[in-house]
Design a protein around this nucleic acid. Structure first.
Lengths: 160, 160
DNA sequence: ACTTGACTTCAACTTAACTTGAAGTACGAG
DNA sequence: CTCGTACTTCAAGTTAAGTTGAAGTCAAGT
């Protein structure tokens, strides 16, 4: 922004693993782990050192944000595969991903709310019906109690 | 209650590990694991087999319900220690626990909602500001961006 | 040229929450 | 009493998501 003799090159320079680590707050070991598992990619220098495109910062931010809401790396990797390989992702590429996550988040929020309400109804009220209630039997193994609706499905959203 | 020759005993009978497993939908190996880790307790027969009090069904239900919302066994064990050792827990004993979890659930719900909204604002809008936003920097490692408020604290609730 | 710190790989270790398997013992029906 | 199933312990294996350490290489300042 402030042109002049200040090193402009850093704006487009590729990043070392240490720089990505510092800027993303993720350990270098984790970044190598992500790369080994196909969540991020790098080129190599002549001396075999990793160089990351600046897009990687966004990918890493996306990874951590997704992890924080309990999504596994496996699923995140699947989602990131929706990004184009051969060009820098556009806003709408990212938007597609985040909408996909939004669904997942909404589902998780709904589930937690249901659980909270069930807990209140079924332990909180003192009726002691816990072992018969939906909260305690999400897998529908109600022993002698007969079948019930399959609730609290932990279905995955739209993404792979 | 209904005296007579029908086997009344099963109402108060202690349960084998297999029976608890069947009724709770939890594998026997998991129950032994819980017991080894102090989440449930048993007495032993003369032949060294476990016998569980019926209260155990409630404990197990509580454990699974809590796990489903992402609480670790460690914390669950801590919470279960709030139950009385020497008498069957009363409704209000359980109520105390569930209220404690309710706080935790509400906190998690709030956090997810914040994340969803951040995600919408910050990736979804296409502004591409992800790497600078609260979602991506819960640990406040914003590189050169300067300090910000510590958000999305994953504090634990009222329970141990 | 030399030193220092950042980088490389690879294997092994970590934690949580279990599961699996082996080898042996108990219980209940017939 | 015998049979079969359910139980016992203990050790080792599993998965996720990394971390740690060893042994060596690269890059940059003086």
């Amino acid at each position: 922004m402030l042109g002049g003799m200040t090193p402009v090159s850093w704006k487009t320079r590729e990043l070392t693993v240490g720089q990505v680590a510092e800027r993303s707050g993720v350990a270098t070991s984790a970044l190598r782990f992500y790369e080994k598992n196909g969540l991020i990619h790098s080129t190599r220098t002549s001396g075999n050192q990793r160089r990351y495109h600046r897009d990687t910062l966004r990918r890493v931010a996306f990874i951590r944000a997704s992890q924080r809401v309990g999504i596994t790396l496996e699923k995140i990797r699947g989602a990131l595969e929706l990004l184009p390989e051969n060009r820098t992702p556009t806003p709408s590429d990212w938007q597609r991903l985040s909408e996909c996550w939004r669904e997942d988040l909404n589902a998780r929020i709904r589930e937690l709310e249901e659980l909270r309400d069930d807990l209140t109804d079924c332990i909180g009220c003192g009726c002691l019906s816990l072992s018969a209630c939906a909260l305690a039997n999400p897998h529908d193994v109600a022993a002698e109690q007969g079948p019930g609706p399959a609730r609290h499905l932990t279905g995955d959203g739209c993404c792979p």
